[in-house]
Design a protein around this nucleic acid. Structure first.
Lengths: 209, 209, 209, 209
DNA sequence: CATGAATGAGCCTTCATTCAT
DNA sequence: TATGAATGAAGGCTCATTCAT
C-alpha cells in the first residue's frame, strides 16, 4: 500500500539531493570554522562547488541554511543514542557505560567540537533553532538517560537520586571535553580516553547504590 | 614615603576611567546579546552614552574592545575562587562545597551565562584571548581545585582518583547550567539551587572515600 | 591552428570589459579632479554608472584602481612616441620636431594635464607606481630620445652634448606647459602652439652643430 | 618716523610667533610627506609640539594652514631671485647663470622637491592659492627673467626670441629636476650639478646671438 | 536549473573640528 | 592661552541577496 506512494527518485532528483547535501556540508565547515555571522556564503559556495546563487535555490537565506546545518549534524548525536535504548539487553551499568562511550566518540569526531561550540555560542540567537534543538535533542536524550537510570534503580544497580532529574550533570563533562579539545588542546592536550574513563567511573560511583 | 608616589586621580582622569568602564560594560551587553561579529559599535556607543568615535580613544579596534570585555568580566569568576583557597580553615569537603556554591552564584549573575556562551562560542577565533583565558582562568582554577582535592586526600576525606587530574569533570555541570539558563530556561525552567545541590552532592560522592 | 585557441569574447565578457573601462575612465576623471586621497569611490561609481560594490569586482582597492588608471592613461603618451622611433625616414631634426609636436598634442588632450599633475603630485607615495612609471615610460622615452639625438649626431645634424644624457631637459618645457594649462590658464592664457614652436626651436638650436 | 609705528614684540608675542612658525614648519613636513588630504593635523600637532586644539588658535582650518605653509615656503624661491635682479652689475649672461644656479640650489634644498610636487599636484584645487602663487611667484619671476633677457638683448649678448615671452621654457628643466629627485632618484640617480650645468649651457646657447 | 555579475545597505574606522577644563 | 577629550560625518570595503543570461 505504502509502496504506491513510494517515490523512486529520478536522476534529476538525486542530483538535487546531492547538491543540497554538498551545500549543507560546506555550510557546516564554514559555520564551524567562522561562526554564523563571520561565515561567508561565497566560501560556502566555493567549498560546495556550486555557484553562489545556487545556494538560494535550496535555502531561503543564510539563516535557513544555518538551521539546516545544525539540524542535520545533530542527528548523529541523537541517533547513536537511540540504538542502545531499545535493543540493549545488559545491565543498566553496562548500558550507561556504552552510551557515554559512544557519546565521547561522537562528540570528538571531525568537526563536532566546533558544532558544539557553535550551538552553545550562537543558537540562543535563533529561537526556532533553540526550539528544535530542545525538542529533538534535549528531550529525547533526557528521557533516554532517565530510562536508563530508572532501569538501574529498578534492577537495584543504582540508588534513587536527584540526578535522574538533572541528567545535564551526568553528561556535562562530555560536552565540556569537546569544548576543551577545540580551545585548549594546543596549550594543554588531554588524553581524552582517560578523561572519558574517569568521567564514566565518576558517574557510576555517583549513581551506584 | 610611598604616599609621595601616590597618584591622586584628577577629575579628568576619573572621568576617563568611568567612561572606559562604561564602554566596556556596554560592549559586554552588546557582545553578550549579539555575539562578536554581529555586535555593532554603534550600539555599543549608544548604550555607553558616548559618541562612536570615542570608543577609539580607549580601544584600538572592535577586537581589542572584545578582549577587554572578556578579560574584565572573567575576573569575578577567578577572584571569587581565590578568597577561599587561602583563608578557609574548615574541612576539604566544606571548602569544596563552598567553592562550588560560589561558582554557581557567580555563573548565574546578571549576564554571566551570556559571557560563558560567548567564551565557548567565539574565543577559539581569538588566539590571544584563548591564551589569556587559559593562563589567567583555567590554570589558576585547576590548581586551586587540585589543592583542595589534595587537602582532602591528605586529611583522609577524599580518596585518590583521576578526578584530581581532570578537574574539568568536576565543574562542567556548573558551566553547562549557565548555558542551560541562557538557552532553555524558557522552555524548561530548572531550579538551579536544587541542580547545584545535586551536583555538589554528586561531586562529593565521587571524591569521598 | 591558432584559431582554435582564439578567444571569441562572449557578450558577457564584452560587457565586463566595457564596465571595467567605464570604471577606469570614471576613476581617471575623479582622481584627476580631486587627487587620489580626496577622490571618493562613491563618485567614481556614480560617474561610471555602476553600484559602489561593483568597483570591487574589478579592482582590489582604491589604490589598485588608481594604479590601473595611471597605467592605462599613460599609454597614449608612451605609444605615440614609438610610432616615430622605428618607421620614420627623414632627418633627425624632422624626427625630433615631429616627436615634440606629437608630445604637445598628447599632453594637452582632454584630461592629460590633470594626469600629469596627478603623477607629479601623488605618484611618489605609490612605490609600485613609481616603478612601473619609470620602467614603462621614462626608460623607453629616454632611450627613444637618445636614439634620435644619436642619429642626429651620426648624420652631422646635431653636435655632441650632455643633453643626450639629460633628456629631461629637452622635454621639461612640454611637461610644464601641461601644468600651466591646468593651473594658470585662466589667469594668464598662453598660446600653446606658439609656446611649442618656441620650445622646439629652442631645442633644435641647443642641439644643432 | 616709521620708528613710531615700530612694534616691540613682548615676550608673549614672540612666543606666539614662534609657535605659529613651529606649526607651519610641522605642517610643511607633513603636507610634503603625505599630501594635503592625507596629512593629519594630529601629526602636525605632535611634530610641532603643541596640542591639537592649539592649531586652531592660529589657523582657521586645515586649508588655511596649508595655504600658509605654501605661502611661507615659497618665499625662499621668490626672494633669492630678487637679490640679483636689482643689485647685480655683471653681464646678462653672468646674471642668468647665477640666477639659475641659485634656483637649483634652492629647489634641491631640504623638502623643496616635495613642495614643488605638492604645488603641482594639489594647488589647482585651492583657487586662492593658485591666485596667490601666480601673483607672488610667477609674475615676479617672469618679469625678472624678462628683465634679464632684455638686458642681454640690449647689451647685444642675447638675440631677440620668443623665449622672452615664454620664460617657462627656460626654467622648466629646473622644476622637473626637483620632481626627478623626489620620484626617481632611487631608481636612476642623477648628478644634479652636471644636469644644472647642461641646462644652463643649453639655455645660454638658446639665447645667445 | 545554475550561474556569477551586480547591487547597496551596513559597518568599522578615521579625522577635522569643537569645547570644557 | 593651551589642551586633548569628545564628536559624528564621511568613506572604504564587505557580503547577503537578486536577477539577467
Amino acid at each position: 500500500m505504502e509502496a504506491l506512494k513510494e517515490h523512486i527518485p529520478s536522476k534529476r532528483e538525486q542530483q538535487k539531493e546531492a547538491r543540497r547535501n554538498a551545500i549543507i556540508d560546506a555550510g557546516f565547515q564554514e559555520f564551524a570554522l567562522q561562526g554564523f555571522t563571520a561565515a561567508k556564503l561565497d566560501d560556502v559556495a566555493v567549498r560546495a562547488g556550486v555557484g553562489k546563487g545556487t545556494i538560494y535555490l535550496y535555502f531561503d537565506s543564510k539563516e535557513a541554511l544555518f538551521e539546516e546545518v545544525v539540524r542535520k549534524n545533530m542527528f548523529p548525536l541523537r541517533d547513536e543514542a537511540r540504538q542502545f535504548a531499545e535493543s540493549f539487553q545488559g545491565t543498566a551499568t553496562e548500558l550507561l557505560t556504552l552510551h557515554l562511550e559512544k557519546m565521547y566518540e561522537t562528540l570528538h569526531q571531525d568537526k563536532m567540537p566546533e558544532l558544539v561550540a557553535m550551538i552553545m555560542g550562537e543558537t540562543s540567537r535563533f529561537p526556532s533553532l533553540t526550539d528544535f534543538f530542545f525538542k529533538e535533542m534535549i528531550e529525547n536524550h533526557q528521557s533516554l538517560l532517565r530510562d536508563i537510570i530508572q532501569k538501574g534503580v529498578d534492577r537495584g544497580e543504582f540508588r534513587e537520586s536527584a540526578l535522574r532529574q538533572f541528567t545535564q550533570i551526568l553528561i556535562a563533562p562530555a560536552m565540556i571535553s569537546a569544548i576543551w579539545r577545540l580551545q585548549f588542546d594546543e596549550q594543554s592536550p588531554i588524553d581524552f580516553d582517560e578523561y572519558a574513563r574517569a568521567h564514566i567511573e565518576f558517574v557510576l560511583r555517583g549513581l551506584k547504590t
